[in-house]
């Protein structure tokens, strides 16, 4: 069946079996292999992507369910060159070790920061409560997201207070 959707900002038409899962489409058809499959049962969060701005587990989405919807993966949150402040914070603060959980972690953090740019540590822990990490012990991930929020806030306020163009 034909599916019209938007993936990372690009309108996309896919011709796939309705049985395929979103993660299969992303990894196998679109070659967007940043999204990882961990448990395949919605417990680990490694496959987290955004659909219409909400974090979901792409291993439990049937292809037909993305008809007409906006999907954003870790690739869509990454600039063509370099990294976003959120990604840089993960590097600087040691928010990743083996890296398997990181794409899902970043997507879940993005979903949080898009709604709340002033999260406290508990709000961050709640937002990533569906993303398992076996390496870091989470403290450094929380620190990374706290720092990223601060960076993004300071950039916003720079924009707010910048003098008008002459």
């Amino acid at each position: 069946m034909k599916i019209d959707c938007t993936i990372n900002g690009s309108p996309t038409v896919l011709d796939v079996s309705p049985m395929r899962r979103l993660i299969d489409l992303l990894r196998e058809e679109m070659k967007l292999t940043g999204t990882k499959e961990g448990c395949g049962e919605g417990e680990c969060g490694a496959c987290t992507v955004l659909i219409d701005g909400e974090a979901v587990n792409s291993c439990l989405v049937i292809a037909s369910q993305i008809q007409g919807r906006q999907v954003v993966t870790i690739e869509g949150l990454t600039p063509r060159s370099g990294l976003t402040p959120l990604q840089e914070s993960f590097v600087r603060k040691g928010g990743l070790q083996c890296g398997i959980c990181t794409p899902g972690m970043i997507v879940a953090a993005r979903a949080l920061l898009d709604k709340n740019l002033e999260p406290d540590a508990l709000e961050i822990r709640t937002a990533i409560a569906g993303n398992l990490c076996r390496c870091t012990g989470y403290h450094r991930i929380v620190d990374s997201i706290l720092e990223a929020a601060e960076l993004e806030r300071s950039r916003l306020s720079l924009v707010d207070t910048a003098p008008p163009d002459l």
Binding site: G42, E43, G45, T48, E54, A55, V56, N57, L60, V61, A108, A111, T126, A127, A129, G130, N131
Partner: peptide, 9 residues
């Protein structure tokens, strides 16, 4: 229930 992502679904 479950996790934030699962509650979104």
């Amino acid at each position: 229930v479950a996790t934030p992502a699962l509650r979104n679904m």
